[in-house]
Amino acid sequence: MESPKLTPDSPDDARIEAWLRMNSAAEPLADVGFSARVLAALPPPPATESERRRTWLCIVGAMSGAILTAAQGSRWSEAARQFAGLTTEFRAAFTPVADPSLAVGLAFAAAALAFVYWRELRARVLN
């Protein structure tokens, strides 16, 4: 810290400088959530290129689907029948999972994966 006069020329000068320095020797202010409030007040981060691409893909896909659906409007009953058939096949595909031994095996596999990737999972959940 510089002072206006580096060599005090009277005892008063020295006392004044000492008083100013003592008066200035304050503890730093505690943060008490100030930094968190500033971070919350920052503008949202701009969308990245991949996010923008994904958004456009979603819009284009949704519009294509809507147009196709409108074009196929007369065939709703057929579409519903096909969907029902698809649901039945889907259920049939998952019937083996109901087997208790397979369920136990899957549970073991999930537990092993959770054990191996525990740190990464925890970091992702907490952040």
Binding site: A26, P28, L29, D31, F34, S35, V38, L39, P45, P46
Partner: peptide, 20 residues
């Protein structure tokens, strides 16, 4: 890279001086 944690550290370091 818009590192907000880094900016948070800067705020934490200098909040006292600016607030005072």
């Amino acid at each position: 890279c818009d590192d907000r944690a880094a900016f948070g550290e800067l705020v934490h370091r200098h909040q006292s001086a600016v607030r005072r």
